[in-house]
Structure formats: C-alpha cells, structure tokens
Design a protein around this nucleic acid. Structure first.
Lengths: 228, 228
DNA sequence: CGGCGGCTTGATCGGTCTCAAGTACGGTGG
DNA sequence: CCACCGTACTTGAGACCGATCAAGCCGCCG
C-alpha cells in the first residue's frame, strides 16, 4: 500500500523522467500511460503492496529491483518474479494483487493508477492492445518460470544465470541485485542447494565467482547445454 | 496443424451450435467472436497443433478434453494445462504456439482465426478488453499451476482433485478425463507417486476410488487442509 | 578487535524417482 | 459365454537428489 514512503509527483510530460532506464529491451513501453505516473522510492525489503490488497495501482521500475512473492502454508516463500528497470509489475485483471511485492535493493518505481489505464483502454484500442500484449508477455514469462520448476537444481540455476545475464548485462560479468535466499525462493530450492550448485558450476569452469553477488559467465554453452 | 482431421464449417449465427457447453462458468465468453468458428473433431491423443507452429488459430473446446504440453530435454513431458468444454486455448500474443496441444479423449473444438480476433480487437475496444481479460485469466491459472509445482506430492494431488472437482462436477463424484500419466505430467510427479498418493488419500478417507478414473471427494476439508 | 549477516561446506535424513512385479479392466476372438 | 491379450494402474524395494541440521567462513561495520 501507499504508506510510509516518500512520493514525488513528476511534472507530467517531461520525457527525461523516463530516460533513467537501463538498456532493457522494449518490454512494457506503455505509450501514453508513461506520462501519468508519480515516482516513489522504497528501501531494501520494504513492502510495495501485499497479496490480496486492492490493485489500484500498477508500477514500473525505474531504478533498483523488485520481487513479487507468496508465502506458502508451510512458511516457505515462493518468488513469482524479479522486476528490473523498465519492467512493469502489479498490473492486475481483477481487483486484488495476486502476489505481494517488495523492493530488493533501494528502488524507485513509477506509480500508475489502474483506473486511468483501464479508462484509457476503453477509449483507445491501441492502448487496449498494449495492455493485452503486456499481459501476454507476463504470461509467457510465468510459463517459462513454471517450466523451470520441474528441472534439476543444476538446470534451474544455469537457466537463472542465463536469464539474468540477458536482462541485466551486455557483457559476461553481472552483478546480481538479489540474495541467495531470493534466488532459492525463485527457483524452488534451498539456499544451500543454490550455493552448492554455484560452486559446482565454478569447478566446471562454467562460471567465475569473484564475490558472491558478482558472477562471470565463462562458458555460456555449458550452461545452455544443461537445459535444452 | 489443420491436417488429417474432419472440418465442418458451422452456419454462422446459429446459436444452438454453442449450446453444447457444460455448466462451466462464464470464462472466455468471447462475445461476437463466437460466431466466427468452424467445428473440428479430434480422436484420442490426436495432435491439434505443435509447439513453434504458427499460431494462426485459437480454439474453444465444445466437447471432450484437451491438454497442452512441452517435451523437456530429458524426454519428460510437462503438461501446461487441461482444457474442458467452454475453455479457450491456443490464443497467443506472438506468432507461434508456446505449447503443443492434443485431444485427450475424443474432442470437438471450435476454431477461430487469430487474424479475425486481432482485427476485431483493433476496431472494437470491448473485444480488445475481452482479449485482455482472457489472457489475464490464463496468466492467473498458470501462476496457480506454478505454485503447485513447489508443494509436496500430497498437496499437489489434493489441489489437483479440488481443481478438477470445481471444473467438471457439481457433486462430490467426478470422472477424470485424463490418465494417471497426464496427471503426473501436469503435477511434475511420476505416475507411481500419483498412484501411491491417491491410495494414501483413500486410506485417509479423504477420497473414494470406485475405479481409477472415478473419484469421490469424501472429505474436501481434509484435502483443503493439506494445502493452505 | 568483536560481532553480525550472508554465504559456503559438511553429514545425515527423507521424499520422490527408478526399476520391477503384480493386478484390474476393457476389448477381441473363439 | 469365456479365454486371452494389451493397456492402464497399483504396489514393492532400493537408489538418489535435494532438504535439513549444524558448523565454519567471509566481508563489513562498529
């Protein structure tokens, strides 16, 4: 919910507010809706919204990283997705959020009223189509995530590293914004298994691990080969 | 692909062609698009389309049941979803199908040209909104499916039975259209584990199992309790 | 230097898979 | 009607992968 956090309304229409994105691809451009947002910042582990809360707002990451998650009955946490600069999250069909969302690191997000999005889509067919495209891409992402969860630990970790490399680095070196626990909860593994698998990949010469969050992909082919 | 299967074009606009649905809820009503389809029938295990084939058509089940799936590198099959009368499948954002689809039992489906759907959505904002809603519901379904895959075998099977009971029966007795292998591949388990878990549930008095495909939910509470 | 949180490593446990029989059921032919 | 067969399902015994429990390590910040 929109509590205990600073909020700055951007002077709408200044395009430089949107230029803080990384090199991320086109995903979620969202045309005219870009101009409707306010900026908010969240500290590490701060809640952005909770599961089952009214989904009155959608969000677009401008800086930092965000995770969505659910808590299972046995206390485990399943992470639904990681959202990096340029990514949109929290946009729902129904009235309530299906997952909770938290900032991972210090994060800045643009807030968009859901009612404004829906209203625009009712008038503008192009906007409605963008909405469909966005949700379709999210669907595709979740399908891939689902396919991950039936693979072996090695395959899951390898897949995860390849995905992150595509999303946050042009080079072979990447700095993960999330902890081992976050990775474990995303992959449906324990922190120990993730850690062990990483060290295996190091001894395989598939990756380098100069520090725990700093990873170098030494042999993308080997990583890919583990999967399909 | 649209090969080796009978195809009958319905005289468009005759509403009795659409009245074969079960008691299924509103899901995927699809307004005007209903009138654009032709009927096709598929025998058991017959392919409807393959992964990576052009997604020129979407489908709506009118009779029988359909599964979508992917084959993993190690030869296992992961089922993406089961589609029952009233359900729509194969509608993609991109140009290609993400999963393969097969009839489970003898099935009848209505075929809809994707181009017609997209064209309609470009003119009619309500249609575009329906498209968005449909994809959003599919997203929600896949999210739930993903959450299933990180639970214990008991929880997965219990969840599956509750889901099927909601989808294909008003009473406590249900007849599964799919085999144990299908269930296993949907839940990310082996056929043996599914079978064993079912017999456990029988000895728990949670279900009755008069025959392998005929299941009676004796204690929904117990099944629910296993999960959240 | 001490303490703390995040990460790694080790030893054991347990749930699910694997491999292998055994059983029930539906269909076919005599 | 029954005998036979093939397929789907169930059951059993053992192996294996990842979880659990428990130390140890490392980097950071006081």
């Amino acid at each position: 919910m929109l509590t205990q956090t600073q909020i700055h309304t951007t002077s709408a229409g200044l395009p430089k507010m949107n230029s803080a994105h990384r090199s991320a691809p086109v995903r979620g451009s969202f045309g005219a809706m870009e101009l409707m947002g306010s900026q908010m910042t969240f500290g590490p582990n701060e809640e952005i919204f909770g599961e089952n809360e009214p989904a009155d707002y959608a969000y677009k990451v401008t800086k930092g990283a965000v995770r969505t998650y659910k808590i299972l009955s046995d206390g485990r946490r399943q992470i639904g997705g990681f959202y990096l600069p340029g990514d949109i999250f929290g946009l729902e069909i129904g009235e309530e959020h299906q997952f909770s969302a938290e900032a991972i690191s210090h994060a800045t997000v643009m807030v968009i009223r859901r009612s404004a999005v829906v209203a625009l889509a009712e008038r503008d067919c192009d906007a409605a189509r963008e909405l469909w495209t966005f949700t379709g891409r999210e669907l595709h992402r979740v399908q891939e995530h689902m396919m991950l969860l039936v693979k072996s630990a090695q395959q899951r970790v390898a897949c995860f590293l390849l995905e992150m490399s595509e999303r946050l680095a042009a080079t072979d070196a990447l700095e993960l914004p999330m902890s081992r626990q976050d990775i474990a909860d995303y992959l449906g593994l324990t922190i120990e298994t993730v850690s062990r698998t990483m060290t295996q990949l190091v001894s395989n010469r598939a990756i380098g691990l100069p520090s725990s969050r700093h990873i170098v992909l030494r042999n993308r082919g080997a990583l890919r080969q583990l999967n399909s």
